[in-house]
Design a protein around this nucleic acid. Structure first.
Lengths: 225, 225
DNA sequence: TTATTATAGTGTCATTATAACACTACCAAT
DNA sequence: ATTGGTAGTGTTATAATGACACTATAATAA
């Protein structure tokens, strides 16, 4: 690469960071690792890392999702690129942040790994390295916004789910209660889920109708919540 | 910077590119330059360039807006980071794309500069270098989306403007006619513009009320169009 | 002075979307 | 047969949207 014609050009280092959301214990969790190197050694941080040679950032994120969370093919989208000079004490390090959504059952990380990957509730985050708190907040607002006009919620639900589960997932992420009747009315009118011929039974209660998403691709909807 | 501990790490080069929109001849224009170097020599491209040492991308864009378009302090936001391996024949070059909005009267580039900066109508773009067509399309959809829930239109209008000018600007960007009465009703109900005690006269027609934006900061609105 | 031209400005109504609200249905377990 | 616990269901008032056409005003030309 002969891009260094300009004497002044000096490349920043480039990393990716992943904000991996999941639903846990009826709350929204995000995966954090414990840094094993300086700077911020032993501090919690988003999983991420430097690009390897000729690796596009999207590939790097996929690699990190695989290696650090054991997930593959989950919903992933680029969030924002952070490159303030003071975000990393080592100097100018640019990070392309992504966010991903995974049902918790799909996650396969070993809790005993050296980096101790672990989920934290978004509302109870520890002190974080770099500008990772800011990145998580940014991801959270993007996630909330997208809930309102896309179907990405499918990434957080099992294949078959009840209306209550669906509504609860919305409530957890939006952080507010929704009216059951209005929710059902609106969601069914979108025509993106369909009831299946199965019910979910439980002890001492009326069984609930199960639904599926008709399509499992990310779709933009005109109207939503 | 001792970030190269990992043998594999090899930084991509980092550039910024700016999609500068303006309204021209009752249409939406975007600023393009003519590349004076390989690759894509003599081909039209977005103004942009490599980061200089320790320069955050936001500063680099401001520098480019100043140097290549003569504008300063205009509305600018980060768009997306493009880093496909095949976007640049020189190799892995990551670009952080931004979009900016400027009223055409503020632009002060010299048409005779070696790079021949020039506005092109978005609907009549020439062949473009790299993935710049894709970047412009992405910027255009972002701009259209943001028109619906922010006040960024102020960046494209003079300080004092008529309802017709405002509506026309919306129509140009959205690419469709809007109903005059509904437009006025909605826009006034937002409470973000106010009539001033002046009218705009013209030959052989009824003078039009002039308005101003109450605030000239970018604001998110709950409801819009 | 009158007529013409061009754009500004104004209201209603039907339809649709939203938001608030509470009770009955069903199954399982006791 | 009773109880516990979640599922499921409609109506109504209010607000937002979208469709629609005529009058008002100033400048200019006749």
């Amino acid at each position: 690469m002969n891009v260094n014609k300009t004497k002044l050009y000096y490349p920043p280092a480039v990393t990716v960071d992943a904000v991996i959301f999941t639903i846990q214990e009826n709350d929204l969790g995000v995966l954090l690792i414990e840094r094993s190197n300086e700077p911020f050694k032993n501090c919690r941080a988003l999983p991420g890392g430097f690009l390897v040679k000729n690796e596009p950032s999207a590939d790097a994120v996929a690699r990190i999702l695989k290696d650090k969370a054991g997930i593959k093919g989950v919903y992933t989208e680029q969030l924002y690129t952070f490159d303030n000079l003071n975000r990393d004490p080592r100097g100018h390090i640019l990070t392309v942040a992504y966010f991903a959504l995974s049902r918790s059952s799909a996650l396969k990380f070993k809790k005993n790994e050296k980096e101790h990957p672990q989920f934290f509730l978004v509302k109870k985050l520890p002190t974080l390295a770099f500008d990772h708190k800011k990145i998580i907040n940014y991801a959270l607002s993007r996630l909330r916004a997208k809930l309102e006009y896309t179907n990405i919620i499918y990434s957080l639900l099992p294949d078959e789910f009840t209306m209550s589960q669906l509504q609860k997932t919305y409530e957890i992420i939006l952080g507010k209660k929704l009216d059951k009747r209005n929710f059902i009315k609106k969601f069914l009118s979108l025509g993106i889920i369909k009831p299946i011929s199965k019910k979910l039974s439980g002890p001492r209660r009326r069984p609930a109708q199960l639904y599926r998403f008709i399509s499992k691709k990310s779709v933009e909807l005109k109207k939503f919540f």
